[in-house]
């Protein structure tokens, strides 16, 4: 019986999968310690966040889906850690919110619960988690225009009047920096939050980065993070190692494997064609 008919997955494909798993397993078992360079866009994002001053309010919109944690999660964790470190060091305030889907709010809660040290910080005064405010682009526009009109409670049902740090937040002009993480289209964010003269940072899938570049070039987005390598760079800059740095060797091997497959595929194709089979 034909292999495909028998199992549904061709043997060659299985071999491709298996080699990939072995390749990424090697550094997971024994790290290779390959060199790393920090990209200029990572440094730019780090600088913009680090430049926040005492009393400044940063709003971080966590909108990525749970399935894309592996790509967006490490940088998100690194940025949260940085922001919460700045609450301690400089006295900034942080608003966390989700607009796109349920997933974002669950990711945000998970990061706050498992990755960020919130001990000694006062909820409602130093940071606040607004949870999911459905509506996506309409919510983004509403927050920029009339913050108090759209934000009624936080994620835990506390009304806004019980959260002192939000008392003076009327619109986007009261927020010093806005950041967002997304695993879908980046368009709504610069459309609604760009052009206000505030830093607007994106943490996204690396595949989405080219899409953000026309906005970045026009400074509607002022900084971007788009891969585990950027996450690793960010972790190095903050001095707080995490998942990004741990997966760096595997990334190198998997990219080289991808290039290798293109070359092998073409050699295979041209050899067969020359042999009259192509």
């Amino acid at each position: 019986m034909d292999e495909v008919q028998r199992t549904g997955i061709p043997l060659v494909d299985r071999a491709v999968f298996m080699i990939f798993i072995i390749l990424i397993a090697i550094p997971a078992i024994s790290p290779l310690g390959l060199p790393i360079s920090i990209s200029s866009n990572t440094v730019e994002v780090y600088r913009q966040i680090e430049d926040l001053k005492s009393g400044d309010i940063a709003m971080w919109i966590t909108d990525f889906s749970v399935g894309t944690w592996g790509q967006v999660g490490p940088a998100e964790v690194a940025i949260y850690r940085h922001l919460f470190d700045l609450i301690r060091r400089k006295g900034i305030k942080v608003i966390i919110v989700t607009t796109y889907s349920v997933d974002g709010s669950l990711n945000a809660e998970r990061i706050l619960r498992e990755y960020v040290d919130t001990r000694g910080l006062k909820y409602g005064e130093d940071y606040v988690n607004l949870g999911w405010i459905p509506g996506y682009e309409t919510t983004l526009m509403a927050m920029a225009k009339d913050f108090q009109g759209i934000v009624k409670t936080d994620a835990y049902g506390n009304t806004i009047d019980k959260l002192p740090m939000l008392r003076d937040v009327r619109s986007i002009s009261d927020i010093a920096l806005i950041g967002f993480s997304t695993s879908t289209s980046p368009d709504p964010y610069p459309r609604q939050l760009g052009g206000y003269g505030k830093p607007l940072i994106i943490n996204t899938l690396i595949a989405t980065v080219p899409w953000t570049l026309p906005y970045y070039e026009k400074r509607l987005i002022t900084g971007y993070i788009g891969a585990e390598s950027d996450a690793a760079g960010y972790e190095k800059l903050t001095g707080m190692p995490g998942e990004g740095l741990r997966t760096l060797d595997a990334q190198t091997l998997s990219h080289i494997y991808g290039v290798g497959l293109i070359i092998i595929g073409n050699i295979w194709y041209f050899t067969r064609r020359r042999g009259g089979k192509g």
């Binding site: 491709v16 999968f17 990939f20 749970v66 399935g67 497959l261 595929g265 073409n266 295979w268």
Partner: peptide, 21 residues
């Protein structure tokens, strides 16, 4: 959820081998 999302990665490799001509 992450494991099921990761299928696309595995299959992108096969696209590279079979389709990138």
């Amino acid at each position: 959820s992450m494991s099921i999302s990761s299928f696309v990665g595995f299959y992108t490799y096969t696209v590279f081998l079979r389709g990138a001509r």
